[in-house]
Computed example of a mutant assay.
Amino acid sequence: MESKIAKHICLKNHPVAVLRADSMPEQSIAFKRGKWGCVVALIKAASQGKIAAAAKDTTVCMGGRAGLGFQGYEHGWIEYFLSTGNDKIPHSEFYKKTPELAKIFTETIPKVESPACLVFKPLDMVGENEKPECIIFLVNADQLSGLTTLANYDRVSQNNVQVNFASGCGQAVLYPLAAEEKGEETCYIGMTDPSARKVISKELMSFSIPYSRFVEMEQEADGCFFATDTWETIKKRI
Rank of each mutant, 00 (worst) to 15 (best):
P132V: 03
F214M: 10
Y211C: 08
E180P: 02
A166H: 14
V163W: 07
N152R: 12
F137Q: 00
S157R: 14
S201C: 09
V199M: 08
C187N: 03
L150H: 04
I136N: 05
L118Q: 06
N140A: 04
E184H: 11
S157G: 10
T148I: 09
L144A: 12
L138E: 01
T192P: 04
L204I: 00
V112F: 00
Q143M: 06
E185V: 07
A221E: 02
A179I: 00
A116S: 10
K182P: 01
T186L: 15
I136S: 05
V215Y: 02
D154C: 11
F105S: 02
M191I: 15
I135N: 04
K121M: 13
C187F: 08
T149A: 15
V215I: 14
N129H: 11
C134M: 14
L204E: 05
P132Y: 01
P132Q: 00
L138Q: 05
N164M: 13
L204S: 04
G170R: 07
D124R: 14
L204N: 04
A141L: 11
M125N: 14
M217K: 06
D193Q: 01
V199I: 12
S212M: 11
V119Q: 09
F214I: 03
T149D: 03
D193A: 06
S157K: 11
D124K: 15
F137P: 00
D154P: 07
L123F: 09
V119Y: 04
